[in-house]
């Protein structure tokens, strides 16, 4: 037994991890969530804005990270729509456009009264990485840089973008990002120098690097699925109708597998250490 664990083929670990995620996912184990202060701060930023506020939704992630980030992007979109804010979607990642489209589908299916061009607009992908952020913060530049929406239609033909102006008109920047350019660049080039309100959602790995910017430069962050689930919970508390909406609970649904996976990792660390100590004792006694 000891030898088996000491020389454990890592494929056994992979199998255990696969089962730890697959079984809870298939059974559909769910746990209640309690929104943390950080999540409540982020929630409050969107909630406190008056109806019709301008919100820039910068979704800088790709299909690879959508498993982790789409639930929070969806939660942000849904929350903004429930609060009847005006939404401007954009991305600095070429593969981010389908991510925006996924969220726009939420608007078209769940909020039929939301009209494209009047309540939300998809500015699409802009090449140039962080330089785009540096450029759009200049006065009037949002209007100069974006002349058409993602489908190639002139922005002048939409009521909400007829006079797009500059980024200072945005009451809040909501960024969901999986890397560079992402939340860090938005904080450094837009939120900090222009005193703009900003919240961000990021992967679990990326979150620690953003903590130093809170609360002055960033109002708050959502880190990984856990925070997305808490955010969904906070929304359900305020809008009980969402309880019936399965799509609005993607994050909550994924917390079951996460718990089991975390327990497995803890178990592996414990077993690994037992082996280490037994090995060391044998080494010293022999």
């Amino acid at each position: 037994m000891f030898v088996f664990f000491r020389d454990l083929d890592r494929r056994w670990i992979f199998l255990a991890m696969f089962l730890a995620i697959a079984i809870p996912l298939l059974i559909g184990i769910r746990f209640p969530e309690e929104p943390s202060q950080m999540v409540r701060n982020v929630y409050q930023e969107i909630d406190q804005l008056e109806e019709g506020a301008d919100i820039l939704l910068a979704f800088d992630f790709d299909p690879a990270s959508q498993g982790e980030l789409q639930p929070m992007a969806a939660a942000f979109t849904r929350h903004c729509a429930l609060k009847k804010h005006k939404l401007y979607f954009m991305t600095l990642w070429p593969t981010g456009v389908p991510m925006i489209e996924q969220n726009i589908r939420i608007l078209t299916t769940e909020f039929p009264e939301y009209k494209y061009g009047t309540d939300y607009v998809n500015l699409g992908y802009k090449p140039g990485m962080e330089v785009v952020i540096q450029s759009i913060v200049s006065e009037g530049n949002l209007q100069e840089l974006f002349t058409t929406d993602n489908a190639g239609t002139s922005l002048k033909s939409h009521p909400m973008t007829e006079k797009l102006g500059d980024i200072l008109k945005m009451n809040l920047i909501v960024n969901v990002s999986a890397g560079t350019p992402g939340a860090k660049e938005w904080v450094q080039y837009a939120a900090t120098p222009f005193n703009l309100n900003m919240v961000a959602g990021t992967t679990g790995v990326g979150a620690p690097a953003l903590y130093p910017y809170i609360p002055k430069q960033l109002r708050g962050i959502l880190g990984a699925i856990k925070a997305a689930a808490e955010y969904e919970q906070a929304m359900i508390e305020k809008f009980p109708d969402l309880k019936e909406n399965k799509d609005a609970q993607e994050g909550l649904r994924r917390m079951g597998p996460q718990l089991v996976a975390h327990l497995l990792i803890i178990g592996l660390i414990v077993v690994g250490n037992i082996i280490f100590f037994v090995d060391r004792r044998r080494g010293t006694t022999s």
Partner: peptide, 10 residues
């Protein structure tokens, strides 16, 4: 998981 098992030793 495999890195935690292998590298996380006290």
């Amino acid at each position: 998981a495999s890195a935690a098992f292998r590298a996380f030793r006290a």
